[in-house]
């Protein structure tokens, strides 16, 4: 028994100004869409995992997942024998959605829960006090449920390459604002800074290809057995490079159009949504989920999809 993907919801900013900025609002809307598709009530969720990296105001406590759970109405205050929901945040960059699905797969496999959701979003915490933030505000949510036979995850692996540990760094530091205020003064502020070295992109792509080879060898299958790849969309060009360098075949790696902007932790969620919308998902038996994070880390999940 493992976990199967019930549905995926995605959300981009629109409408009210608050919704454009708030990771929580975007996450809740993505989660509602995915629950609606799965025909599930929020109260059926045993676990809610949030894998956002860039959060509203860089909040540290409580877990953002708790706010999402509350706004979603997923057992905010269970009483007596009523169902409960446990929420927490994981931080795993572009691998977060896949790691979240792996955790929920484990909980479902062991009979701890029936359904779980992974929600992820990234927003610019402050348009004024950030340097190097290039991601589009976005959110994605994936609902997972129990699979007794047929569809479900069959294998997860993570590959880490510490020699690239410092290739991408992001932190919040109290320092002089790089921009002057209206009085022409540069004040001291807590500023989010993302610094990406020139090596990050080529290293991430090379290591991803290397990790896919290792994974396939361990799984005892070849690239020709893979029907579809749902990858991180960052670093930019990763899906195209995976398609080109693995020789998997044209159209088997989901790449989002450039006008989508750069999607970070929600990238695999948007790719999955597109694959489902275009019918690629329904036609594919072996699907590879691929996540890439700074550090450097590559997460891979093999999903068997029974039409």
């Amino acid at each position: 028994m493992s976990a199967k993907i019930e549905s995926v919801g995605t959300e981009l900013p629109g409408g009210a100004p608050l919704a454009k900025r708030s990771a929580i609002a975007l996450s809740v809307r993505a989660a509602r869409k995915s629950l609606k598709q799965a025909r599930l009530e929020p109260s059926s969720l045993g676990v809610l995992i949030n894998s956002s990296v860039y959060k509203d105001e860089n909040i540290g406590e409580p877990a953002v997942a708790a706010f999402i759970q509350r706004d979603l109405g997923a057992n905010p205050i269970p009483k007596g024998d009523a169902a409960t929901t446990f929420s927490f945040d994981i931080i795993d960059g572009g691998c977060g959605l896949i790691t979240g699905m792996e955790i929920i797969d484990g909980l479902i496999s062991c009979g701890e829960i029936e359904h779980g959701i992974v929600v992820t979003s990234d927003v610019n915490p402050s348009s004024r006090y950030t340097v190097g933030f290039k991601f589009r505000n976005s959110a994605a949510a994936v609902v997972l449920g129990r699979s007794d036979v047929g569809s479900g995850f069959t294998k997860f692996r993570q590959y880490e390459y510490l020699e690239h540990h410092q290739d991408l760094r992001s932190n919040v530091t109290f320092r002089k604002d790089p921009r002057k205020n209206f009085m022409g003064v540069r004040r001291m502020r807590n500023i989010l800074t993302i610094e990406e070295s020139k090596e990050f992109r080529p290293s991430a792509i090379d290591r991803t290809i290397e990790s896919i080879d290792l994974f396939l060898e361990e799984a005892g299958i070849g690239i020709s057995d893979i029907d579809l790849v749902i990858p991180s969309q960052y670093p930019v060009g990763l899906p195209q490079e995976v398609e080109k360098r693995t020789g998997i075949g044209h159209g088997k790696v989901v790449a989002l159009p450039a006008d989508n902007g750069i999607l970070y932790s929600s990238g695999p969620g948007f790719a999955l949504r597109r694959a489902m919308k275009e019918g690629l998902w329904a036609r594919s038996e072996n699907v590879l989920f691929l996540g890439v994070s700074p550090g450097l880390k590559v997460s891979i999940g093999l999903y068997r999809n029974t039409p």
Binding site: G60, D92, L162, L168, R169, S293, K297
Partner: peptide
């Protein structure tokens, strides 16, 4: 600084 990435566990 408040570190966001890479992971502290790494």
């Amino acid at each position: 600084s408040m570190m966001i990435e890479p992971l502290i566990s790494m």
